[in-house]
Amino acid sequence: MTNPIARIVVVGATSAIAQHTLRAWLAGRDASAHLIGRSESRLASVEADLRVRFPGSTFSHEAVDLIDVEAIERVADHETANGDPDIVLIAHGSLTSQTDSQKNLRAASEQLIATGVSPALWLEAFADRMTTGTLAVIGSVAGDRGRRSNYLYGAGKGLIERVTQGLQNRFEGTDLHVVLIKPGPTRTPMTEHLAVAGARLADVHLVAEGIAHAVTRNKRVAYVPRRWGVIMAVVRSIPAPVFNRLDL
């Protein structure tokens, strides 16, 4: 290889899951990582933290509006101009209150765009420009079946799943791999309110190791922790008349 240092691009790099996934990758080897997100100051502090942890790796960051189509195209052009990144990880998403979104269409729209449309456009933009490497996106177990407590969030995640299925079909047999990650409930700032309510949440550090592993192996779909694959198979198989009577 001419360039042994891997290049990683992370969209939504301020997310706890993305940060820990980067840590899991960089603990094994030096790389260069470009961090993309919506907040300049948060990106700068994530970058500083990574620099302290991994002095052998190189980092840069860029704040953009993650739902702006022109910005997405510009960044994707730039990041693929001198060759394809080895890994692109798309990690952002927004879990707001389902009841708020039901009452307020604007909130519902923002939720669907931030969780579904925006990540799908980032996928599309990189897929159109890359011929090698791995394009990974964070979906969720919530995308597997709609339920009353979070179906708008789940719909966004489901949208991502359809897009990755299409991309996987489109790039079958080529050197571009598309990976969909479906984490189960994980302890991060996004789930702070669930933790407070006493929910059982996986350790972000372990989830991130699972993600790093799945992406490195180019898995098509990876549930992390793995047991969620089994749980969701059961959840998907419950007949609707029964399912709809459950309070999930």
Binding site: S45, A48, D49, R53
Partner: peptide
């Protein structure tokens, strides 16, 4: 606990800011 970031480390002096 969420204030969990390193800020800078000076390899010369050994001062860690976090």
């Amino acid at each position: 606990r969420g204030l969990d970031k390193f800020i800078a480390f000076d390899e010369q002096s050994g001062v860690l800011r976090c």
